[in-house]
Design a protein around this nucleic acid. Structure first.
Length: 802
RNA sequence: GCGGAUGUGGUGGAAUUGGCAGACACGCUAGAUUUAGGUUCUAGUGUCCCCGACGUGCAGGUUCAAGUCCUGUCAUCCGCACCA
């Protein structure tokens, strides 16, 4: 043997060569076919790389390397989503500038990624905290502001009473602050909002033209939560006032026996003087507002409420007087903040009516007794007790009642979404400054584009202030400025953007990362977009993925990007769990550090193992024994050198297997079936060992197929074998379909579906001959009358006998 | 409660269209090499009442044939939480 397999030496050697030769740089030759592969850029945390990171990175690295060998101009970039809370908290605790913390973390992450031999184009590295980068994040914000899609609104934030700081929802665990365990209350603050709801319909429609895995599409649609219904006006009795409700069941209008408004509904205050039980109302509202979200959901089972004394409403279709209640099961933030309650056909209304003894009137027949349970099935059932709707099916009744309401001018059809506008402010230091000033005369005024980037100033302390303002608020020199519009005194916005901002457009920047004039050139965007394949975690399906689709669609509508959708294809990887099947965490003591695996076994082994561990989209438990098995496989590939012959062709015995393997590996790599691709290569080398030899030509194909998975080792073997040039520049092997099938095949012979014997036949043998041969092979196992003879070519013979 | 998955040997997992269930790997058993351990190699390894039958969470069904299709059901995991 030439020498032992020594990954420590080999891996360093090739990583250096790839760097020096810039082997994986995407070219600006726009005449070549392109392939843009993208993985979610990491948040460079202080913990360093986790074994979960390499799973998606290796997967798309495999596809990227394969596509390069197939002649594509491949863009496979990497960068840092580096703004964010943990860095800021670390900076506060250790009194180190977040910039320095970030730089250190990035350095560590980069070394770790580098040690895994990824074919990233490091010339295009980006960092969201780089002013050259956030210049354009701010620029997009200005575009949104100028288009009327950014606005300020009073919004409750999560306020930790001990840390005196606003928390993100993710930091509130079971109603208390994640870090200190103190109570979290709501505090109302004026916040920047982005009108993503204006794009709800476009974000749903856009899903039709992309190739996302189904569960991602379903999650996005559910998150947007489109519902088709109607708004109906109810008159208040003896008043010139209407109360508008939203309902998806206008067909049940005759069954509306009461109304419910949310405790925050403005109508309540308006009729304060006429409400006879104002004290009860106040007490209830007080209680509702104090409940945290956590309590509200905890107590979700039991309905509460108070009737509004002294005022009532009139059901517009039958003129009946009905009471109005307030209850926190009606949310001010959805629909109109008021509902018509139809207890016979809605479970929540039914529960409420039962508790408070309100009438339940059946208007859709077909279920059980509505006094016992609500009947909510819309597919069956016909209208009753509903005058002109009687006898109609639900669907017909909906259409007819809407027509009626529109005619009378008391209602119309209406679409609602669960999606809320995006809260875009954070009272934090380590984020992009929002490029807006507030002028007493002109209101909120955007900076002009030429004043970007608006740099994050140096501050003394990163600690938010006592009143919940960002640390920037204490920087009076920076805050006090002049209005770009009138030149008068103005104050800068001191909130910063959320971490989602920088990641909402980063894939655009990779196409032209050093451009100082635009976020990227038109030519670069036109050539590279859309991203051909984007892989990321399911946890980003509803926030990051939706936010970035929103920004992208907005940029498309404004002629800045050439495609409606940013990502053509979206796939998702499963989590890597600890040996015990639980999520890896320090407290569970089951964390595996990728550095240790690289040191002990090598990067190629880690890559192979993570791809072999199981189906890519499912979670998988770590197994150190499994890692050893993959190292063993690579050793066996290495040692094939000992039994190599110098023929350049495939040997006769191995030809079919070679073509089958090329076909399988090529297909599997493109379909995220890395585990079976690797299994096929393992099976191939088992055959080489059984045969006691491998030809030079067979070995060449094998290491080419294996190269995307184990790039260092195969590149070394390529050089040792003198195949010429570099393996990463070699051509991807091709197969001949005709040669993937053996001329003689083994098929199973069954009687009544049970396999009795197997036999070898010529693959083109005619059905009658196969049957005859099968009967002969069965001999006296076959008894009774043959009823039917089935031959599935190349697969099976089944004789049905009685 | 709603939505999405998943359920196959001792373990991780294979099985395009329904067509030989358990590929590949781990582990285990026996043997060879080795002073010994490890490594490496060879053979074996679903279960049982072992010339035969039974086996893909459970119960039915369709079919010549079901892990795969249909109906019902159970368990586990993840996401969302009164969205009218």
């Amino acid at each position: 043997m030439e020498k032992m397999y020594n990954p420590k030496v080999i891996e360093k050697k090739w990583q250096k060569i790839w760097d020096d030769e810039k082997s994986f740089a995407a070219t600006d030759d726009y005449s070549k076919p392109k392939f843009y592969a993208l993985v979610e850029f990491p948040y460079p945390s202080g913990q360093g790389l986790h074994v979960g990171h390499p799973r998606p990175y290796t997967a798309l690295d495999i596809v990227a390397r394969k596509r390069r060998m197939q002649g594509y101009n491949v863009l496979y970039p990497m960068g840092w989503d580096a703004f964010g809370l943990p860095t800021e908290n670390y900076a506060i605790k250790n009194k180190i500038h977040p910039k320095i913390v970030t730089a250190n973390n990035v350095k560590r992450f980069k070394e770790q990624l580098h040690s895994l031999g990824y074919s990233f184009d490091w010339d295009r590295e980006i960092n969201t905290t780089d002013p050259e980068y956030y210049h354009w994040t701010q620029w997009i914000f200005l575009k949104l502001f100028n288009a009327g899609l950014a606005y300020k609104k009073e919004m409750p934030i999560n306020w930790c009473t001990s840390c005196k700081v606003g928390l993100a929802n993710e930091e509130v665990v079971n109603g208390v602050c994640e870090r200190c365990g103190s109570e979290v209350v709501r505090k109302v603050k004026s916040q920047w909002m982005l009108k993503i709801t204006d794009y709800a319909e476009k974000l749903i429609e856009g899903l039709d033209e992309v190739d996302y895995i189904e569960k991602v599409k379903v999650s996005q649609k559910n998150w947007i939560g489109r519902s088709q219904g109607a708004e109906v006006d109810f008159k208040l009795k003896d008043k010139d006032e209407k109360l508008t409700v939203y309902t998806t069941r206008p067909d049940t209008l005759f069954g509306a026996t009461y109304m419910v408004v949310s405790p925050e509904h403005p109508l309540i205050d308006k009729y304060k003087d006429e409400i006879t039980n104002w004290d009860d109302i106040t007490a209830y509202r007080e209680m509702a507002s104090k409940k945290s979200d956590f309590e509200r959901t905890e107590l979700a089972k039991e309905k509460t409420g108070v009737v509004l004394g002294g005022i009532s409403a009139v059901n517009p279709v039958n003129g009946k007087e009905i009471p109005i209640w307030i209850s926190d099961y009606v949310l001010m933030s959805y629909g109109t903040g008021a509902i018509m309650a139809v207890p016979a056909h809605d479970e929540r209304d039914w529960e409420f009516a039962k508790k408070f003894g309100l009438p339940i009137i059946e208007v859709v027949a077909g279920g059980e007794n509505v006094q016992e349970a609500a009947f909510t099935d819309v597919a069956t059932g016909k209208l009753v007790n509903s005058e002109f709707l009687n006898g109609l099916e639900v669907k017909e009744a909906k259409a007819k009642i809407i027509e009626y309401l529109e005619e009378k001018g008391i209602g119309h059809s209406k679409v609602n979404y669960k999606l809320r506008d995006w809260v875009f402010s954070r009272q934090r230091y380590w984020g992009e400054p929002i490029p807006i000033v507030k002028c007493e005369k002109c209101g909120y005024v955007p900076l002009s584009e030429k004043d970007l980037p608006l740099l994050l100033p140096e501050v003394e302390s990163y600690m938010p202030t006592d009143d919940g303002e960002s640390p920037l608020a204490a920087m009076t020199d920076w805050v006090n400025t002049t209005c770009p519009c009138c030149g008068g005194p103005a104050k800068r916005e001191t909130d910063t953007m959320p971490q989602w901002a920088g990641s909402s457009w980063y894939f655009l920047r990779y196409t032209d990362p050093k451009n100082t004039k635009e976020l990227a050139s038109k030519e670069a965007l036109k050539y590279w977009l859309p991203v051909d394949w984007y892989n990321g975690g399911m946890e980003h399906t509803t926030l990051h993925l939706l936010y970035s689709r929103f920004w992208h669609r907005f940029l498309y509508d404004n002629g800045i990007v050439p495609t409606k959708e940013p990502y053509q294809k979206r796939t998702s990887h499963g989590m890597i769990l600890g040996e015990n099947g639980e999520k890896m965490s320090k407290s569970r003591g089951n964390v595996v550090n990728p550095d240790d695996i690289v040191n002990e076994f090598g990067a190629d082994t880690l890559r192979t193992y993570e791809m072999f561990i199981g189906a890519f989209d499912l979670s998988a438990s770590w197994s150190q024994e499994g890692v050893k098995g993959c190292r063993r496989f690579l050793e066996r590939v290495w040692k094939l050198q000992d039994i190599m012959t110098d023929e350049d062709s495939y040997s006769k015995e191995m030809e079919t297997k070679m073509h089958q393997t090329i076909k399988k590996v090529s297909y599997d790599f493109e379909n995220l079936k890395f585990n079976t691709a690797i299994a096929a290569m393992m099976s191939l080398i088992n055959d080489f060992y059984k045969a006691g030899k491998v030809t030079r030509g067979e070995f060449k194909t094998l290491i080419t197929l294996l190269n995307p998975v184990a790039p260092h080792m195969t590149e070394e073997l390529w050089e040792t074998m003198n195949y010429g040039g570099r393996l990463y520049e070699a051509k991807w092997p091709e197969y001949d379909e005709a040669k993937t099938v053996e001329s003689t095949i083994e098929i199973a012979v069954q009687i009544n579906g049970k396999t009795k014997v197997t036999m070898d036949i010529d693959k083109d043998m005619a059905k009658d001959d196969v049957i005859a041969k099968a009967k002969e092979a069965l001999g006296d196992k076959l008894s009774g009358n043959v009823v039917k003879e089935i031959y599935v070519p190349g697969r099976i013979v089944n004789i049905v006998a009685k």
